[in-house]
């Protein structure tokens, strides 16, 4: 269900911008279901770890205040063509996901 997509673009600074889109509901836990009147339980991505050639380069901590289907961008400074970049995420209900891509 949870699809993760990654795009890598070359940046003016010489590095690469890594863009990650996770399909995730990002429920805050405050929203009420209109039909039942009950609160929808919180369900959000907590951590996203970016690795570059196997070494962690950034770790994002997300909260329920991040929008549905979070789109996150970070910058790699020391990246070259052919390097592998991967991302792993974990949510508050223990679900995980991730993807991997190679810099063109």
């Amino acid at each position: 269900m949870a699809a993760t997509k990654m795009k890598i673009k070359k940046d003016k600074s010489g590095g690469h911008v890594v863009m990650v889109l996770v399909k995730h509901p990002m429920e805050t836990g405050n929203r009420k279901d209109k039909k039942t009147g009950k609160k929808v339980p919180a369900h959000y991505v907590k951590t996203m770890v970016f690795t570059h050639n196997g070494a962690a380069v950034a770790q994002a901590s997300l909260g329920p205040a991040v929008s549905k289907n979070p789109l996150t961008q970070i910058l790699l400074t020391n990246s070259n063509s052919g390097d592998t970049v991967s991302v792993q995420w974990t949510d508050n209900q223990g679900e995980t996901g991730g993807t991997e891509a190679t810099i063109k």
């Binding site: 600074s13 590095g15 911008v17 805050t28 405050n30 970016f50 570059h52 070494a55 962690a56 380069v57 950034a58 770790q59 994002a60 901590s61 997300l62 909260g63 329920p64 205040a65 991040v66 929008s67 979070p70 789109l71 996150t72 961008q73 970070i74 910058l75 790699l76 400074t77 020391n78 990246s79």
Partner: peptide
């Protein structure tokens, strides 16, 4: 950080060597 949100902290990122000072996201 969004000052007037019920919980102001929205998101943060820890940058390690190899990554630059850029962070982009979409918040509520």
């Amino acid at each position: 950080v969004v000052e007037k949100n019920p919980a102001p902290w929205a998101t943060s990122v820890e940058v390690m060597p190899g990554a630059g000072g850029l962070y982009s996201t979409r918040i509520k």
